[in-house]
Amino acid sequence: MMEVRGLISHYGRIQALSGIDLRVEAGELVALVGANGAGKTTLLRALSGVQPLSGGAIWFEGADITRTKPADRVGLGIAQVPEGRQVFGPLSVEDNLKLGTYRRRGPNVAQDIERVYTQFPILKEKRQQAAGTLSGGQQQMLAIGRALMSHPKLLLLDEPSMGLAPLLVEEIFRTVTELKKEGTTIFLVEQNATAALAIADRGYVLETGKVVLEGKGADLLANDEVKAAYLGGV
């Protein structure tokens, strides 16, 4: 479904991505793990088109989208739940969800909002509140719900567990697993490598802008190198 070849990106003179190759097949849940500063967020930003590239190519459903504008990529079916949630704080929960349909419009908006509310009942309770007043976990649910409103073919998730209490982390990961079951293709970026690899079909390990390991989620989880570096010792 998506293929990335030789992706290179810089922040000023610092190279953040030095030739990334990876692919995500339709229906897969692929995890990308790595330490802080490895370039995980930069890669996701590049996939959504909001990070300038110095080289490489991105293909989506057989088309080269390397030069496609960010807004048009959403139209193609790539939605991102960005790091730090990035909800529209002063706007209501419901308005945040509606904005998720910006590229799609269409008649089933109310129905889709109901579906998000079924998945996250707390959002229904707070539908008229400003999104900025929600707790971190609730904002994460809102950010995921907002991205789902665009009916994405490929959902990019950036650190959905960051800064959340363990119970909430569990709930978010359960949601991700459910979404996969419903057929959404997911590319999950996480520092919480154990949890991410446990639910992933395949995984990539990113280190200073390079993919250093790849394999099945379970295999990576059992890999000694990965254990030592990311899973808190053997």
Partner: peptide, 24 residues
């Protein structure tokens, strides 16, 4: 209107607005 809310959203968070498919 969604168009008006999109303009507000852009003012609150241009990056997230782009990720919603809004042409900032």
């Amino acid at each position: 209107t969604l168009e008006g809310k999109a303009m507000l959203a852009t003012s609150f968070n241009p990056l997230a607005a782009q990720l919603m498919g809004i042409n900032t």
